[in-house]
Each structure stands twice: as C-alpha cells, then as structure tokens.
Nucleic acid binder design. Structure first.
Lengths: 208, 208
DNA sequence: ATTTTTTTAGTACATTTGGACTAAATTAAT
DNA sequence: ATTAATTTAGTCCAAATGTACTAAAAAAAT
C-alpha cells in the first residue's frame, strides 16, 4: 500500500514529463491517481507545492550523489562520475528542466532557492577547477576570469542539454551518454598533457 | 493606421514576453488589442498560427542580418558582429526561446521547420570554422569531431543563454552583451596565437 | 450603384479549472 | 470505547477558454 502522497508525486512527475507542466491540472492528476481533487489539494495546496516537493526529490538525489563521490580521490574521475550520474538524474526529472523557466517564473520561493543552490554549484566547480590546476590536470588561466566564463558556459549546458536534446534528437532517451560526453568535452581544451591522458583513459573506462 | 494583423502580432509578442506563452489566451490578446476575439481568430486561427507568424519575423531578421555581414571579409569579425546582433534579435524575441520547448512540443509544423534550420546553422558554423582553420585563426582539430562537439555546445548556448539569464541575472535586459562575451569566449581556447591577437583586438573594438 | 469579398462584432455553448465549503470515513490517541 | 485528528469525497460556484455560428459593417470589385 503506497502512501497517497507518493502516488500523487509519481503521477504528477509522469504527467509533467509526458505533457508539460502547463498542460497538467490538479484535477487531472487526481483523476489519474484515482482520488478526488479535494484530496489532492489536501496534500498539496497547488501545483507549486507539488513542484517544490518534486524539486526536493531532485535535491536529495543530488546530495546522495555528492556523498557517493566524496570518497573519490581522482578529481577528474569524480567529474566523470558526477556528470554521468547527474545527467541521469536530470533526465529522470527532465520535466523540471524542460519547463525550468516556466516554473521559475511562477514559483518565486523555488526560484529563490535555485539561485542559492546556483551559488553553491559555482563554488563547487570553482573549487574543483582550482584543485585540478594544482594537480596539473588543467592549465592555469590564460586570462583573468577565464574559468568563470567556463563555469557559466557549463551551467547553461547543464541546465539545458536535456531541453535541447528534446528538440533536436530523434531518441532523446538515448542521449544522456551522448550529452554527458559533450559536456565533459567542454573541459578538454583546458587540459594539460597529463590531463588529456587521464581524460582519454576515463573516456574508455566510462565507455564514452 | 496600423494594420490589425501587425497590431495583433505586436501585442501578442509583448504579452508572451511579459507573462509566458502558456499564460496568454487568444481572448486576452484580442482584449488588449481592442478587437473582438472572433476578429483575432479571423486573422490567426489559434496561438500556433500567431507563433508561426512571429517566428517568421525572427527568421526575416536573421536573414537580414546574414545579408549585412555577407560583405565582411574578416571571418572572426563577422563572428563578433553576427553574435552581437544575433543576440539582440534573440533578446527582442526572447519569449520564443524562453518557451522554446513548450512551443516545439505544441507546434509540430514549427518544430519541423526549426530542425531544418538547425541543419543550416550547423553547416554555417562548420564552414566558418573550416575557413578560420584555413586562415590560421583556429587550430586544427586535436581529435576527430572535436569541432562537431564545439558546435553542439555552441548551439545549446545560443538557444538557451537568454533563458538562463532570466533565471540567474538581476538585470536580464543588461545581459545581452555579457552573454555575447560568454558566447564568443567558447571559441577562445581553440584560437591560434594569431587568432588570439585578432580576438583581443575585436574585444576592444566591440567594447566587450 | 450594386454586388462581392473582407473584416469585424456578438452570442451562445460545452468544458475545464481552481477554490471554498461540508460531511463522511478512516486512523490514531486516550 | 470514545474522542480527536487526519484523510477522503462530494458539491457548488464563478471565471475563463476555445470553438462554432450569425450577422452587421466596411472595403473592394464590377
């Protein structure tokens, strides 16, 4: 006997994925779950509450992933792992990124939260890059803020690769690996010779 | 006396920009224009017809821009110009990119058209890059398909920088130049020494 | 000048939606 | 066993939406 809340969230996620957040109503979700719409409202006041809750799930997955890779000493390898696993999470919750701007526009609370998380993400990448510079995997900045630019570039890719693949790929479901590869490649031109060697090894290791 | 069709398109564009495509109804647009909704339907069968027509405007702007830079001999300079002017067009029609996936999901005809255009865009970049390699501005590929990867990366950035800026920037309206700079920087690591010199000169020239 | 065509407004309808409110049923607490 | 809290369903409502249909008004063609 699954908890109703869980059922609601699952069905909402499925419907959001299939038809887009804006095309799914509370009533429709309740219909699909097989409960009254009043009941759904009892658990989640509105669509935003649902979305906030689903985003919480994403966050938990991300935190879990971070824990898993925390033990990995090899910085570049941990970048590979977090990319691949992270991209799977994003694909699983793709409705969130596909309707990202819509959600941010209508859920101020969530928007604020996302902006905070973004700061953390920036710092995480910043730290990771510094570490790789120390380890002589990535070359030093060729000009000021070079890697700040890179991080922005990387942020946009992370946030929107799944949207782009929905538009342009024949089989978006097969594109997780493909885009993970694209993503990782953004770092390639900054690698030192040593870095490139590791990178190539990791490509085979991860079968990319 | 402005043509009604023009008025409708202008108002639709404005409303789409302000509130998002999914939050604007035919009836509301007609109300804002000051005509009956039947009249609007007479001119545009539905929202998709409106969007198709607005996309036509984008296309015309893009074609116009291409004509303008066709005379420019300096490949790198033409990249700068087309980026800056292109980004202004995108910002002007930002509703289209912000709700890109929504529109593509619901307007099959337009989706098909966009996929065709994407092929052209790919070829254009491919050609531009080849040219810059010949001119010793960009280095040769370090591995196979390196520049195919770059083009995908560039595609995602072009399509979604405006969405991302809406989410993360305080003053999205000021971010055209900023993101144009980010965009151009994607090419930097691939430049030859000669290329880097031109690039730096162009940065000053365009005040970036 | 009159006939056609194009453009515009009005009306009516079935459906959907979110929200409020009430009450029944189920579960937990005492 | 009774009471209280939680969960669920049912009903009603006002607002909005897309669509279809009719007819008037305006413009263009003859």
């Amino acid at each position: 006997m699954k908890d109703v809340k869980v059922k609601i969230l699952e069905k909402a996620k499925k419907l959001f994925t299939d038809r887009g957040v804006s095309n799914v109503s509370i009533r429709e979700i309740s219909r699909e779950v097989g409960i009254s719409h009043s009941n759904l409202i009892y658990h989640f006041q509105d669509k935003n509450a649902l979305l906030t809750s689903l985003h919480q799930q994403i966050l938990e997955s991300a935190i879990q992933l971070n824990k898993e890779i925390a033990t990995e000493k090899d910085t570049l390898k941990s970048l590979f792992t977090s990319t691949l696993k992270g991209f799977e999470i994003i694909y699983d919750f793709r409705f969130f990124m596909i309707d990202f701007n819509l959600i941010m526009r209508e859920n101020t609370e969530l928007h604020q939260q996302i902006k905070e998380i973004e700061k953390l993400r920036f710092m995480m990448y910043d730290e990771k890059i510094s570490k790789m510079i120390d380890e002589n995997i990535i070359r030093k900045e060729a000009y000021e803020k070079e890697y700040d630019y890179l991080i922005t570039q990387v942020r946009i890719f992370s946030d929107y690769w799944v949207s782009s693949s929905q538009v342009y790929e024949r089989n978006p479901e097969l594109s997780v690996k493909k885009y993970a590869r694209f993503f990782l490649n953004q770092f390639y031109p900054y690698l030192t010779e040593k870095g490139r060697k590791s990178f190539d090894d990791l490509l085979s290791l991860f079968d990319l």
